[in-house]
Each structure stands twice: as structure tokens, then as C-alpha cells.
């Protein structure tokens, strides 16, 4: 299972990763549009550098959750998680409902709002390149190895090693290790990265779990409602039959 580890303390904000991403994925020039969020990501920018005072440079991209909310939300399975850990998109299946954009806790998926035939656009961890045995374009070009690619367990070990070596430098937390069930794009940092998501602390419950209980009870609700309605009808019919002998008074029962 592949992953990316980004060390915020190392990033120099050179934007090489951004331009490499653009050229590898043949993305168009990014024009500021009224519908863009102000984090630099857009349909043509799949990764961006957010600058925080300090200066700190935080590379934002899809987190490639181990249990992705977007993939569980997509009604046609256009988004799916591969064995390699990348959450990829099949534009041939998509219907454009944008439920994935609603479901993502990091607000990552972007939309071709200006196109008559629009698609969802987001980082796919350079999945075709991983299949070729290469690493993603962004980690390959990073001149200071601030963002590195590898197996998730090895990167986690590396992250903890760096934190333990320099406990004063880093916040004692690998961002993405456990949140919402763990993600594949990990960060270690000297500032809190809660702003990358819609909430500061996301908790460890994978988001697909929130709907799975309701979805599992669907067949039971279906059959249960049917049985209840049929039973109710049977009881009322029977009472009508009996009522013919006695007095027809159950009319007031529901009023």
C-alpha cells in the first residue's frame, strides 16, 4: 500500500510539485474563477501550496483515505480505491451528481463548472505512473525531499522516527495516521494542520461507517414496512368483518 509523507518543516514552497503535477496530468492553465475555494486547488490544480505565516508551506492534495467517503458515496462507483492505495476516478461511469464533493471531509474533489461536459477532478496519486513502477510526479521532482513516496508502513515508521529524533521541532502526531480510519497522504509538521479539513479534529471513525448502518437496515425497513402495512390491513379488515356483527365504531380510532 503506497503513500506520501510530507514534512512541512522541510518544504521551501518552490512549487515544483505543482508544475510537475500539471505537466504529468496535462492540466490546463489555472485561471481564478468565481467558484474556486481559496486553497489554490481547482479543476486544473490537483495540488497546491498553502502558505501560512512563519513562513510555512503546506502542500494540499487528495488524502487518499483508506476508507474513502467519496467512493462510498458515489452511486455508480466512479470513484474507487485501488490496491496501491490511490483513490481513482472513472469518468466513463460518472453522472455528475457531485455527492463525492459533498461527502469529502477535506473538500478535495473539484468540478469542471465551466464545461458543458464536466467531470470530477482530483489528485489520483499518479496511479498510472505507480503501475509503471514510477513514483508520483510531485514526490519525484521535490528538490529537498520534503514530500516522499513509499509504502505506508515504512513512511509511518519514518515519520515517527523523525518526530522522536526531534521532539521539540515537531508536533507529536502524524497527521493522517488514524483520522477517519487513516489516510495515505501523511504529514508531519510543526504547526497544526487541522485547517486542511472542515473540522479541526476529525476523529477516527471512517466516514463510510456513518451511512453503513442506515444502508444495512434498508432491506429490513423495506420488508418490515411491507409486513406492518399488510398486518395492519389484515387487522382492520378482520375488525370490519367482526364489526358488521357488533357496531361499526372503529372509524374514530384514527381521528
Amino acid at each position: 500500500m503506497k503513500a506520501i509523507l510530507t514534512d512541512i518543516t522541510k518544504c521551501i514552497g518552490c512549487l515544483e510539485c505543482v508544475s510537475a503535477c500539471k505537466s504529468v496530468n496535462s492540466l490546463e492553465m489555472d485561471v481564478p474563477r468565481i467558484w474556486q475555494k481559496n486553497d489554490g486547488l481547482s479543476a486544473d490544480n490537483w495540488t497546491s501550496i498553502i502558505q501560512k505565516p512563519g513562513p510555512h508551506y503546506i502542500r494540499k492534495q487528495c488524502r487518499h483515505c483508506l476508507e474513502p467517503a467519496c467512493a462510498s458515496a458515489c452511486p455508480v462507483g466512479a470513484l474507487s480505491r485501488t490496491e496501491e492505495g490511490a483513490v481513482v476516478y472513472d469518468s466513463g461511469k460518472c453522472l455528475g451528481c457531485r455527492y463525492c464533493m459533498m461527502a469529502c471531509p477535506y473538500g478535495i474533489p473539484r468540478y469542471d463548472w465551466d464545461k458543458a461536459i464536466p467531470y470530477i477532478r482530483k489528485c489520483i496519486l499518479c496511479h498510472p505512473r505507480i503501475l509503471q513502477g514510477k513514483q508520483p510526479a510531485c514526490t519525484e521532482v521535490c528538490p529537498v525531499q520534503a514530500t516522499i513516496f513509499g509504502n505506508r508502513d515504512e513512511l509511518l515508521a519514518e515519520a515517527h522516527r523523525r518526530i522522536n529524533e526531534n521532539p521539540n521541532k515537531y508536533i507529536n502526531k502524524v497527521f493522517g495516521e488514524t483520522e477517519i480510519g487513516g489516510v495515505s497522504v501523511l504529514y508531519i509538521s510543526d504547526i497544526d494542520l487541522g485547517f486542511l479539513a472542515y473540522k479541526q479534529e476529525l476523529g477516527s471513525l471512517p466516514l463510510p461507517k456513518t451511512t453503513s448502518a442506515a444502508m444495512k437496515s434498508v432491506p429490513f425497513a423495506f420488508v418490515g414496512m411491507g409486513a406492518f402495512m399488510y398486518g395492519l390491513n389484515w387487522v382492520i379488515k378482520r375488525r370490519e368483518k367482526l364489526g358488521d356483527k357488533d357496531k361499526p365504531n372503529e372509524d374514530n380510532k384514527h381521528e
Partner: peptide, 18 residues
């Protein structure tokens, strides 16, 4: 966005999705 693909719901199933 792609309304002509609405029939995909009948072919590509994802029962996890509400």
C-alpha cells in the same frame, strides 16, 4: 453534470451509497 449517464445507476451498482 452528465444527465445522459443517469442510466448508469442501473448498470454500475454501489449499494453502499445512499
Amino acid at each position: 453534470g452528465l444527465p445522459w449517464n443517469i442510466w448508469h445507476m442501473m448498470v454500475f451498482w454501489n449499494p453502499h451509497s445512499p
